[in-house]
Amino acid sequence: MPVPLSTNVGPLELESPTMLASGILGISTEVFGRILGEGAGAVVTKSLSTEPWEGYANPTVIGADNGGMLNAVGLSNPGAAEFASMLKKSPDVPVIVSLVGSAEPDFEAMVSEFKDCNVIGYELNLSCPHVAKVGLEVGDDVELVGRIVGAVKRATPSPVMAKVGLGSANYMDTVTAAVDAGADAITAINTIRAMAIDADTAVPVLSNKFGGLSGAPIKPIALRCVYEIAERGGIPIIGCGGISTWRDAVEFILAGASAVQIGSALSGGRTGVFSQVNAGIGRYMEQKGHSAISGMVGLAAKS
């Protein structure tokens, strides 16, 4: 009998520990259905705003050295209301809705849009590193983080996750503010602010100049953050940052993550990455004699 891959992230129950990270694909219920069919335990939407956003001009997504990816998509999304009307047509596809905004009223208004949708949780984007007035600029304002998380918790009975990143504040202060305001889990980490310059033309490549680095180059940093948040304790963690193999996923679980998100590894059409990672985690658990994911979470800190 195969090892069960189910895991709980606080109140969120997942059939497998691999999730589609926010920002990746994320605009179509048909695509969500496909990703869930590939074995993802949950899918997170693109970050939604109160109004539709077109995002930045291309180039918005390019490769980076050593298997990385650099993006400044600019949080393009059709807006929360439009997205909710799409979700209502597919009640059989459960999603975690990612929200981005500047203050409590933005988030409260958006949560109310999803009342009749199959939303199993909300992830608050407090960490996008390339759009002004939202994302990381909010995450760096620790007091504002507390107010936003508190407002969303009051607005919905669904689990609320705070996605943090590395900005100018100590990210652990952002974590503490979110935890104190009642967050059910922390997603760590977002992309890290970065850029690319073309030597031949002496031009920054991304139209926004600055973007977020993701993929393999940030994995050791993300792993360190998950470990640190686990050491702090008191909050379930979803690990994110450069996960592309089962070994990466296991490392994050051993660091303290109850689930992991996968994003850049889908590059080149690798939607099969979820089933591959799940299968590898299952084999690892059998070899090591683990009967549940929960028994592996944070083991590296206990060694």
Binding site: I24, L25, V31, R34, G55, T60, V61, N71, S267
Partner: peptide, 21 residues
Amino acid sequence: MKCGLGICGSCCMDSHLVCTD
């Protein structure tokens, strides 16, 4: 298309991506 890599989702047609499928 924004990425051409199967990441951004802009080119989705039903459950398929025009860039990678």
